[in-house]
């Protein structure tokens, strides 16, 4: 565990708490992609298959349980109490391609052909693209509530910090997963446009609005 990894995990945790705060304070899930949230739950469920069979640390176990439970809870909130605030016409990304594409990549690139490894690889490639429906919706709407942009910033920062974590690990001679690094770099790159507007507008107190 290094400082980049720990800060990255904390940003991931923070992103989910910010999203929950947004939904609860505004009593609305407007601007949030339901598809992205379902993809994240799928990512956690397929990645943490070893949750109850392979104990490594209290930290990992607690975080895994939190990620699964919180993303399931967010989906529940979007599907039931705040269903009326969800606009499915804005959430129009064709996510079948993501689910299918990640499945193909998972069958081509696993380190070993075991159920766990194939699912783990699937989760890595699915996470790589899971933010696309959310970014697509942002693009369509052209603007976003400030708290929603803080959510996206925390999520993007988590990914960027993981890259710093891998560089650190590599230099320390620790094991680094090639597939995870490659997918992580692609995933972080997807946030570039968002980061630019976040830094040049939102952090200067302006509304998030696409040019």
């Amino acid at each position: 565990m290094n400082i980049f990894r720990l800060t990255g995990d904390m940003m991931h945790l923070a992103s989910i708490l910010i999203l929950l705060l947004k939904i609860h304070t505004s009593h609305s899930c407007a601007g949030i992609s339901f598809k992205t949230q379902v993809l994240y739950l799928t990512v956690f469920l397929t990645r943490y298959l070893d949750l109850f069979t392979n104990f490594t640390s209290v930290y990992l176990t607690c975080m895994k349980i939190f990620f699964i439970a919180s993303s399931a809870y967010i989906i529940y909130l979007m599907r039931f109490p705040f269903k009326d605030t969800y606009n499915k016409h804005l959430d129009a990304f064709r996510w079948e391609f993501l689910l299918g594409g990640a499945a193909v990549l998972a069958l081509v690139f696993p380190q070993k052909y075991t159920v766990r490894e194939v699912f783990w690889t699937y989760s890595i490639f699915l996470e790589m693209l899971a933010i696309l429906p959310q970014l697509f919706q942002l693009q369509r709407t052209g603007e976003a509530a400030t708290i929603t942009t803080h959510y996206l910033f925390a999520l993007g920062a988590y990914r960027a910090l993981y890259i710093a974590n891998w560089i650190y690990r590599y230099q320390m001679g620790e094991h680094v997963d090639g597939v995870a690094v490659l997918a992580g770099i692609v995933q972080t790159a997807l946030y570039c446009d968002f980061f630019y507007i976040y830094f040049t507008r939102v952090l200067r107190g302006q509304r998030f609005k696409l040019p």
Partner: peptide
Amino acid sequence: DEEQTEHDEL
């Protein structure tokens, strides 16, 4: 004997 790959990241 098959050894599990260790994935220690979240």
